[in-house]
């Protein structure tokens, strides 16, 4: 029972961070229909930013979100305007390769700037935890889970209540129709990519105190983000949040009840099953 509870709790907490990564990708995908292979690399840039702010200026990683998010938003808008925008109507395989190339550029630039050493961001609370009913709960992960929940809530409010948010959702639902309705689709794409990058960067900042940073760290998270996005339904924010937690919990349950080596297989099998039996995702509307 302890083992079950332990793996459930740590699965949910880690899933929170996954959710944030997934939400970023789902926004980009929903609005632009582009599979962004550089998403994990954007997150990696966010991790380095957090690391620099911490080691040079001494800003706490959780506080640094306030700086990381806007900076990463700007980076996202920039990438969208300069690169992604040019391939919006191109063949899908060209879009994929463009983002792959972009990812290579980002990770290798970081390698030149920071060398490929692992950077470990050790805060005073990095390994502190508290115990509930025999399960140990990581303090930094709990804080990041709460921040994630707040951001998800805020984003949801933004997308449902504000005009811009509604325009983004309309674009995600049907690009042509949105254009006909007079929505500035190009602008929405910029905002969506900016938000996607901002959220990925934030996820990077939140995981930094309990994880580690190196230039190639992104690819692991890119694949996870794909799974989460499809699980939740491409374009669905709440779906991605739930998808993130599902992935977190299946990983940690898989590690305990099957084996650590097979836990990722568990995730991919769930992913394929969802694709086959509910291709629109758990919360997405079918667009097949």
């Amino acid at each position: 029972m302890t083992i079950f509870l332990q793996s459930l709790i740590s699965g949910i907490l880690v899933g929170g961070v996954y959710a944030l990564i997934g939400i970023g990708l789902t926004l980009v995908f929903g609005v632009m229909r582009i599979i962004n292979f550089a998403h994990g690399d954007i997150m990696m840039v966010g991790m380095y930013l957090t690391y620099m702010l911490f080691s040079m200026v001494g800003i706490d990683p959780f506080l640094s979100v306030l700086i990381t998010f806007p900076l990463m938003y700007l980076l996202g808008v920039f990438l969208q305007k300069v690169l992604i925008n040019r391939v919006l109507d191109a063949l899908p395989q060209n879009q994929i390769l463009l983002t792959i190339g972009l990812g290579l550029i980002m990770s290798n630039t970081m390698m030149l700037a920071f060398t490929s050493d692992y950077k470990i961001l050790s805060t005073t609370y990095s390994s502190s935890s508290f115990s509930v009913g025999g399960s140990s709960i990581s303090q930094p992960l709990t804080i990041s889970f709460l921040i994630t929940a707040a951001i998800t809530g805020g984003l949801y409010w933004f997308l449902v209540k504000t005009n811009t948010g509604q325009a983004i959702r309309a674009t995600a639902q049907d690009r042509e129709a949105a254009q006909l309705m007079g929505i500035n689709v190009k602008r929405m794409s910029g905002i969506a990519f900016g938000l996607g990058a901002g959220l990925a960067g934030t996820a990077g900042a939140l995981i930094a105190p309990t994880y580690y940073i190196f230039p190639q760290v992104g690819s692991v998270f890119t694949l996870k983000a794909f799974v989460i996005t499809v699980l939740g339904g491409m374009g669905s924010v709440v779906g991605a949040a739930i998808g993130g937690i599902i992935v977190g919990v299946s990983e940690s349950m898989g590690a305990v009840y099957i084996s650590s080596g097979w836990k990722d297989v568990v995730v991919y099998v769930i992913f394929l099953l969802v694709l086959l039996f509910k291709p629109a995702g758990l919360l997405g509307k079918s667009r097949m």
Binding site: I35, S259, D264, L272, L275, M288
Partner: peptide, 28 residues
């Protein structure tokens, strides 16, 4: 039989997932 039921980006992602399952199986 799994992936061809899917189209576009869904097909791309499914093909990645299947290849990853193969890699992890060979590893494990």
């Amino acid at each position: 039989s799994i992936c061809f039921r899917l189209r576009g980006p869904y097909f791309v992602l499914a093909s990645i997932a299947v290849a990853e399952i193969m890699r992890l199986s060979a590893t494990n």
